[in-house]
């Protein structure tokens, strides 16, 4: 589903990734870990082309994205659901509209969209917050709203950047359960986290980033 070959990313002469190579199989649930500043967010951003690589090749769902034309980027992004580290909920729109946006962008008709949105909101425990503004939600609730937006369109690939950064251990466990459910339905899930509890005991692959490359690979 995702394949990196010697991927290099340099920010203003600071090397964030010096040559990352890995493959994530279709249907896999995979963790990236590493110290803060190790390049986890950078790696995920390269997948949905928020940033361009400076070297190497990246392919997503069989598509070579490093040489992709700008006009094809929206199509790539619509295959992917992203749980942004900084949330990116739109203020001035209700939680319902924020989640529905992911479907509207994909051209889903208004009639068809309501049940889907409400179902996902129920899944993340935010059904009662559908009409609230994002600003009025707690950090944990906002986090779950972002997850709802990322999964509502059932993307083939889900990327989550520190998805439990704002959550207490119990809620974190609930979020992990959601990711496992989504993954069980066939979505490939890539999670970047520094939270050991999230992957310990899962038996899933955990890739540890250090020095701008994958340092170790282990089972969680």
């Amino acid at each position: 589903m995702v394949r990196f070959e010697g991927v290099i990313k340099t920010y203003e002469n600071q090397q964030a990734l010096t040559g990352v190579t890995f493959q994530a199989a279709r249907g896999e649930l995979l963790f990236f870990t590493g110290a803060s500043g190790a390049g986890k967010s950078t790696l995920l951003k390269l997948i949905y082309r928020a940033i361009d690589p400076d070297g190497g090749s990246i392919s997503v769902n069989g598509i070579e994205t490093s040489s992709m034309k700008a006009g094809h980027v929206p199509g790539l992004r619509r295959m992917i659901g992203v749980v942004f580290q900084d949330f990116r909920l739109l203020s001035g729109r209700s939680i319902y509209d924020n989640v529905a946006l992911a479907l509207r962008i994909r051209g889903v008709a208004e009639r068809a969209l309501k049940t889907q949105v409400m179902e996902v909101l129920k899944m993340v425990g935010l059904r009662h917050k559908a009409d609230s503004w994002p600003e009025t939600l707690s950090g944990g609730e906002q986090q779950r709203a972002v997850i709802a937006r990322a999964i509502v369109a059932e993307p083939v690939l889900l990327l989550a950047d520190e998805p439990t950064g704002n959550l207490d251990p119990d809620t974190s466990a609930g979020v992990m359960r959601i990711f496992k459910d989504i993954n069980a339905r066939g979505t490939t899930v890539l999670i970047a986290t520094h939270n050991r509890d999230l992957y310990t005991g899962t038996g899933r692959r955990v890739l540890k980033l250090a020095g701008g490359r994958i340092e170790t690979e282990a089972a969680g």
């Binding site: 929206p74 199509g75 990116r88």
Partner: peptide, 15 residues
Amino acid sequence: DEVETLSLLGAGGWF
């Protein structure tokens, strides 16, 4: 900011 978010969510130019 909003425009950038829409774009990251995969919205096309005319959307």
